[in-house]
Design a protein around this nucleic acid. Structure first.
Lengths: 74, 74
DNA sequence: ACATAATGTAAAATAAACTATACATGAAGT
DNA sequence: ACTTCATGTATAGTTTATTTTACATTATGT
């Protein structure tokens, strides 16, 4: 257990960003689709390394994709 | 194995920031001293959650403390 | 009706992060 | 000389992230 305190906007970004599919994003960042599924579902938070690669892929600063605690963004 | 691609400025920050000791920082962010030691040594990269808590403690954006690949900062 | 592609879900196995414990070293103070 | 404190190092154990495999569902196209 131990609830996951980190949220993200991955799902939204996949659609805004070239309509990426889960599998395509997974390939781009070098993980399996299951990992993307789990992240979108909020099952756990990624490693910092993976978070960086995802941010890289979307060309966004990490903190615009991932946030600690409640989402405070627009 | 699997080399760690994420670096950080934790050690420097401990000194710039109130001369925090490893143990004090560990307490503030809720991990053991061993974790801080490992991070400073670059043995592995933290979870995203821990990275956020550390950034919080130093009152800095996460990406000013942690960087992917080579350090490109000043 | 059939095939294909995207997604959801689930569970067992491996890898990586993190803890707990323990001991060693060097510096600083008394 | 002794104590205390910060740090270094090591290793076994637990927890969490990630992989692998597998099957189900819904939508789209032919």
């Amino acid at each position: 257990m131990g609830k996951n305190l980190v949220g993200n906007h991955i799902r939204k970004l996949r659609f805004n960003h070239d309509e990426l599919t889960q599998q395509q994003l997974a390939d781009k960042v070098g993980v399996t689709r299951q990992t993307i599924v789990a992240l979108e579902k909020g099952n756990y938070s990624p490693s910092l390394e993976l978070a960086f690669r995802i941010a890289h892929t979307f060309n966004l600063p990490l903190e615009e994709i991932f946030y600690y605690g409640e989402d405070t963004k627009q």
